[in-house]
Design a protein around this nucleic acid. Structure first.
Length: 494
RNA sequence: GGGCCGUUAACUCAGUCGGUAGAGUAUCUGCCUUUUAAGCAGAGAGUCGCUGGUUCGAGUCCAGCACGGCCCA
């Protein structure tokens, strides 16, 4: 315990008094029958007279969140996982001994109550306690009831307090779980199989990102936390799991921002005999299914802007998109030097020698992305920045790939998969030669994956959806830290 | 990495021109058996993020550092 603060000293005094009286401060034999929500759902509409007819007693437990003391009686609010209910504790009903114990309870303590229901003068459904138990004594005070906990840093560092006193925060994380449940429900119903693939990989593959490194002592082997599960999921497709998905964490050793946390949650799915177009349809359907269930409709507000998820979503090619919002014509865009100069003129720090496709995607991020507020699929990316995507039949320098943008954020990335092992080998080698990947620690030619691909992968389409960003969108959260329970923060200096 | 902002009681926040550190909630004491931000009366509670500087005197001005937020790269 840190240096004893006055408030803790006062609580410790009560603790010692209770111990001396023989009270167990941490019992675990109270039987909980109901949640607050159960009682509100069942009796919330009942009139005072109807409640008088209910002779039944109910037992519930929870944390004391508010207390209004009248000397020989008190009103308190009890909060459990499903809600809150008011409890009336009076000396003449619970008995003098229990009431003496109650007087030593604090906001923040856990309490078990058995009682009957009534309605107060001010019409609030209230449990009239006939017996009470202290279930856990708390030693520190909770944040203030009215303003709650506002300090962002404390909210993240002491998320338990944030969850306790800020109901909206609890709601966001409940929604997050609901969203992931709905994803599973949606994909399971379409005969996708959920799998788990390695988090620790000898070669980090599937995305261009700096990995976290770790070491296995017994094998004396360096390992990397995965930046994507892609190459393992494809191995499973090769192994005959024609429809697979995984919802789990990826790790990227890069910057932190309102859009980026070093560990983040991704859905990746693979469907054999499907194309990137099939996956656009699936994405549209799945996101609408989730929104319908979580929001009750397809209209939502994100940070003051209105977003309509009603299908069909807009689709346009990368080229069309750049020509629409950029001040550049088709001919200039196709000329490497001119396109590079144009990009540099916009303040994008690019050096000569970068792959042509990189100019295109940088331009996309810079001039198109902010405009893509309503859901939009941008399609047909350059091949040289899409090493795992299948080439377009008619334009081999483009791939059958899409990215989904909503509210100016990249939410999904999918493509028809490259299943030609010879082409794949060449593209891996080219990627590594280009430096930005090759120089990144751990990235090297994954012979084991190529070996698998040489055994034959059926025509397949795959996609990744950023779950954190999807949750941000559906909960109107401005920062990724609002949708991750314990976002990464630097340790606090003592 | 750069710019701007923040850090004061357990929580939410004031703090004027540099001159004894403030409020509400919470806590403690007393009264109170239908309150709900209960009420009334009283009390206690501070390393003003940290380190240094300027000054007779620093929460306040200056520099550096830490952590966080927003924006930019």
């Amino acid at each position: 315990m840190d240096e004893l603060q006055p408030l803790m000293v006062q609580r410790l005094r009560k603790v010692n008094e209770l111990k001396k009286e023989g009270t167990n401060l941490f019992p675990n034999d109270f039987r909980v029958e109901k949640t607050c929500e159960d009682l509100v759902n069942r009796f919330g509409q009942a009139t005072p007279d109807e409640l008088k007819m209910v002779k039944e007693s109910f037992s519930l437990a929870g944390r004391i969140m508010a207390m209004r003391d009248f000397g020989k009686a008190a009103f308190i609010h009890i909060q459990d996982r499903r809600g809150k209910i008011q409890v009336y504790v009076r000396s003449d009903r619970v008995g003098k001994k229990s009431f003496g114990l109650f007087k030593k309870m604090d906001i923040g303590d856990f309490m078990g109550i058995t009682g009957t229901l009534f309605r107060t003068k001010t019409d609030e459904l209230t449990l009239d306690a006939e017996s009470i138990r202290l279930l856990t004594k708390s030693m520190r005070p909770l944040p203030e009831k009215w303003h709650g906990l506002r300090d962002v840093e404390t909210r993240y560092r002491q998320r338990y307090l944030d969850l306790l006193v800020n109901p909206k925060v609890k709601e966001i994380f409940t929604k997050r779980t609901r969203i992931i449940q709905l994803i599973r429900q949606f994909l399971d119903a379409r005969d996708f199989l959920e799998v788990e693939t390695p988090m620790m990989q000898p070669i980090p593959g599937g995305a261009t990102a700096r990995p976290f490194k770790t070491h296995h002592n017994a094998l004396d082997m360096d390992l990397y936390l995965r930046v994507a599960p892609e190459l393992y999921l494809k191995r499973l497709v090769i192994g005959g799991f024609e429809r697979v998905y995984e919802v789990n964490r990826n790790f990227r050793n890069e910057g932190i921002s309102t859009q980026h946390n070093p560990e983040f949650t991704m859905l990746e799915l693979y469907q054999s005999y499907a194309t990137f177009e099939d996956l656009m349809a699936l994405t549209e359907e799945m996101v609408c299914f989730i929104a319908q269930n979580v929001l009750g409709g397809l209209a939502l507000e994100y940070q003051g802007g209105k977003i309509d998820l009603s299908p069909p979503w807009k689709r346009l090619t990368v080229k069309e998109a750049i020509l629409q919002w950029g001040r550049i014509d088709s001919k200039t865009l196709q000329d490497y030097d001119k396109a590079l100069k144009y990009a540099q003129g916009l303040g994008i720090p690019l050096e000569k020698g970068i792959p042509p496709g990189k100019i295109i995607t940088e331009l996309l991020d810079e001039i198109v992305e902010p405009h893509l507020i309503q859901p939009t699929f941008v399609t047909h990316y350059p091949t040289d920045v899409s090493p795992l995507s299948r080439r377009n039949q008619d334009h081999p320098d483009l791939v059958d790939r899409f990215e989904l943008y909503i509210a100016g954020k990249e939410v999904a990335n999918g493509f028809s998969e490259l299943n030609d092992p010879v082409d794949q080998r060449e593209r891996f080698i080219k990627q590594l030669e280009q430096g930005n990947v090759g120089e990144m620690e751990g990235h090297r030619l994954d012979e084991d994956f190529l070996h698998a691909l040489e055994s034959g992968m059926p025509p397949t389409a795959g996609e990744g959806i950023g779950i954190d960003r999807l949750v941000m969108l559906l909960t109107d959260s401005p920062s990724i830290r609002e949708v991750i329970l314990f976002p990464l923060l630097k340790p606090q200096r003592e």
